[in-house]
């Protein structure tokens, strides 16, 4: 560590810096098409299956409402304009919540400095 950084930390009485500007809005997250493209990939739903087999674990940052919802539902909602019949059916049965709810959730976590 550079001596000037070390001196500043000593003056602040800290051992490290932590970057704390987490004001990302979900609209910022939407700027990255690669994230939206990945959400459409059915292979990511494999995580749903493994999560179902694993014991539930509570974390202090978890959102019960969002955590209770399988990723595949998010995928299916995202693809509600061009989906297979089976996925489309789940779209109808599930409450209509855009996949952007996930991005908004990420934004909220960021605003609270939890990501």
């Amino acid at each position: 560590m550079r001596i000037d950084a070390r001196n500043l930390l000593d003056r602040l009485g800290r051992n490290e810096f932590a970057y704390k500007e987490f004001e990302d809005r979900f609209s910022d997250l939407e700027l990255w098409p690669i994230l939206e493209a990945l959400l459409r990939d059915p292979r990511l739903q494999t995580l749903d299956q493994t999560a179902a087999e694993a014991p539930p674990v509570e974390t202090e940052n978890s959102d019960p409402e969002l955590a209770a919802e399988p990723l595949k539902n998010l995928f299916s909602r995202y693809e509600q304009h061009s989906v297979s019949p089976s996925i489309a059916k789940s779209v109808v049965e599930e409450p209509v919540r855009d996949v952007r709810a996930m991005l908004r959730h990420l934004s909220d976590l960021g605003a609270r400095g939890e990501i």
Binding site: Y19, D24, D28, L29, L35, L47, A51, T59, M102, L106
Partner: peptide, 21 residues
């Protein structure tokens, strides 16, 4: 690198995707 917007967004994406993993 949390000082970079794309890094923060990518990490947030992974976190939601991987959850407790």
């Amino acid at each position: 690198d949390e000082t970079r917007r794309l890094g923060r967004h990518g990490a947030a994406f992974i976190r939601e995707l991987a959850g407790q993993r």
